[in-house]
Amino acid sequence: MRGVHFQPTEDQEALRAGVRDLLAGRYGREELRASVDGAGPAGGPVVDRGLWRELGEAGFFALRLPEAEGGVGLGLPEAVLVFEEAGRALLPGPLVATHLAAGVVPGAAAGKAVVTAFDLGGDLVAYLGEADAVLGASGEPPPAGEPVRSVDPLTPLHRVAAYGDVSEYRATGTLLTAALQVGSALRTLELAVRYAAEREQFGQPIGAFQAVKHLCAGMLVRAEVARTAVYAAAVTAAPGEIAAAGLLADEAAVAGARDCLQVYGGMGFTWEADVHLHLKRAWVRAGQWGTAAQAEELLAEELLASGS
């Protein structure tokens, strides 16, 4: 008897491994640091169009598009696994928006187009200078904006005069962004554990001190709870579960990066360590597709309606 089989299937794990391998080969630490060095107000584009197309060919953007429309024909459970890997690799670019644009914006499914979205709120749009289209925009070409200095070196920002509506994409956008956050949370946990096992003070690895151990354990608990919430939401696609997954994943990613930074000590405060890149991206993602307040209000409403 099989019963509920919540864990990813072999095929799903193979898909995840394929994306992990692709990203390890094409966007490892060297490439990550090179894109950080190349970015900045005067720097070049952040999105690597060649890699974007490779992702397209691998089915990253067309994953959930029906086969009849040239897609891979898979679902949200597969999508959250590959987005988790992209989050782990800290891959820059409007991944979620371009994935959502597959079948809507020409070229998005194949990774030939870079599509961003009005997903940040306020008056900011990410990757506007490099995008071929903006989800939620009323017409072509993409609206113009004023570049502003971004906290995350790999998420260039523009300030725009008028904002669009992306509510029809909000639920799926929230879930896929949560998957990115889970990948980042698991990665910062790995970094913290590795550093804690190597760095010695007072004659022993700092990871032998309970104060450091407990930080790492807390990171794991948050990441595991968030990951389960994301997987469950991918299976049910229920609005409440998606909202909860978003909240928990944002917390796991932001607090995970903060704790990782703390474990790294002074090194964590340097530009050279990758920790700040995870934290800054986690801050960006936590603001995408709606606020924590909106998610909590949605859940509160559902709670009140439950069982009454």
Partner: peptide
């Protein structure tokens, strides 16, 4: 307070899923 309850509802939902996991 309302938002705190909403978040808790999400957390207990996730804990239920973790049990199933």
């Amino acid at each position: 307070l309302r938002r705190r309850m909403g978040r808790l509802y999400g957390e207990f939902g996730a804990l239920w899923r973790l049990t199933q996991w």
